[in-house]
């Protein structure tokens, strides 16, 4: 069985007015089907990318896979364990949570501006009781910083002292602090400049090799996907319209929507 499996995943959002307003105006409930029966599975140690435009439901799926949102229907299993299992004890929940972490889109909002980088990195170790003792935690934080290409002296700085790319590295280090097996990357480079984007993508790749990480990559950028993913799912308005391995998707896209996405992506070529 695959490492991460999403089965018939659905999510509706209730966009209706408050009950009293609805009754007074006689309007029905307004429901938005953000994700509609999506199925995919990710093998251990590979990267699966969900590609879609705004409103495609890709971020909703990311939030469900990490457990920030509950699916309306369907299930997500990680290494055979159902994420929505209500009978799970709290220690078991924590054990499962530790294995799934996330790297967020915004390098500015994803780090608490009042916390020092060292404290940001030590928090997951404490929450999951991975490393006891503040001295050992400091050492581990320094090690993490070096793994993502920063220096151990950066631990005593605040997030605002770093550039966007460096903050994204810190965000990656925080995810690694939990020693996860799956990392969900939600548009991790879309706020970064091209030259920095390449650094972050390369870092993610080399970490995957080193730790055998499994990635779920959420993005709107086909170019990023082509360098990162083994397998790609294309989302359109909550529905998974096509799924292929990377090579197949770019050489023989089956759906018109995919073809349109590929053809409209800006390319550097000289015959326009």
């Amino acid at each position: 069985m695959s490492f991460v499996v999403a089965k018939d995943l659905c999510r509706t959002f209730d966009l209706s007015d408050p009950w009293i307003v609805r009754k007074l105006t006689m309007r029905p409930k307004r429901l938005l089907q953000a994700v509609d029966r999506v199925n995919f599975s990710i093998e251990r140690g590979t990267t699966y990318a969900l590609v879609g435009e705004s409103g495609s439901g890709k971020s909703t799926i990311a939030n469900m896979v990490v457990g920030l949102l509950k699916p309306s229907a369907g299930s997500i299993t990680i290494d055979g364990q159902n994420l929505g299992d209500a009978s799970m004890s709290r220690p078991d929940q924590q054990r499962l949570r530790r294995r799934i972490q996330m790297v967020f889109q915004s390098p500015y909002a994803s780090l608490n501006p009042r916390w020092k980088v060292g404290d940001i990195l030590c928090e997951p170790m404490r929450a999951f009781k991975l490393i006891e003792g503040s001295e050992a935690q400091r050492r581990r934080a320094a090690e993490l910083l070096e793994q993502v290409g920063l220096s151990d002296s950066d631990a005593s700085k605040y997030p605002h002292e770093f550039s966007g790319g460096q903050r994204q590295r810190i965000s990656i280090a925080r995810a690694l602090a939990s020693q996860p097996e799956v990392i969900i990357c939600d548009e991790p480079t879309s706020a970064l400049d091209v030259s920095v984007q390449a650094q972050v993508l390369n870092l993610l790749k080399s970490l995957q090799k080193e730790f055998g990480l499994t990635y779920l990559f959420i993005t709107h950028d086909l170019a990023v996907v082509s360098t990162m993913a083994n397998k790609i799912g294309v989302l359109n308005q909550g529905v998974l319209v096509e799924e292929q391995d990377t090579e197949g998707l770019f050489s023989t896209p089956r759906e018109d929507y995919t073809k349109m996405l590929i053809s409209s992506a800006p390319k550097i070529e000289f015959g326009s």
Binding site: V66, G67, L68, Q93, Q94, R97, R98, I100, Q101, M102, F104, Q105, S106, A109, S110, L111, N112, E123, P124, A127, F128, S171, R174, S178
Partner: peptide
């Protein structure tokens, strides 16, 4: 709504910890 709060939820902190510490 900011992502650092989501990150805190991901490591299983409870409401009070998130409210008071973050």
């Amino acid at each position: 709504e900011k992502e650092y709060v989501a990150a805190a939820r991901l490591i299983g902190l409870n409401r009070w910890q998130i409210m008071l510490r973050h």
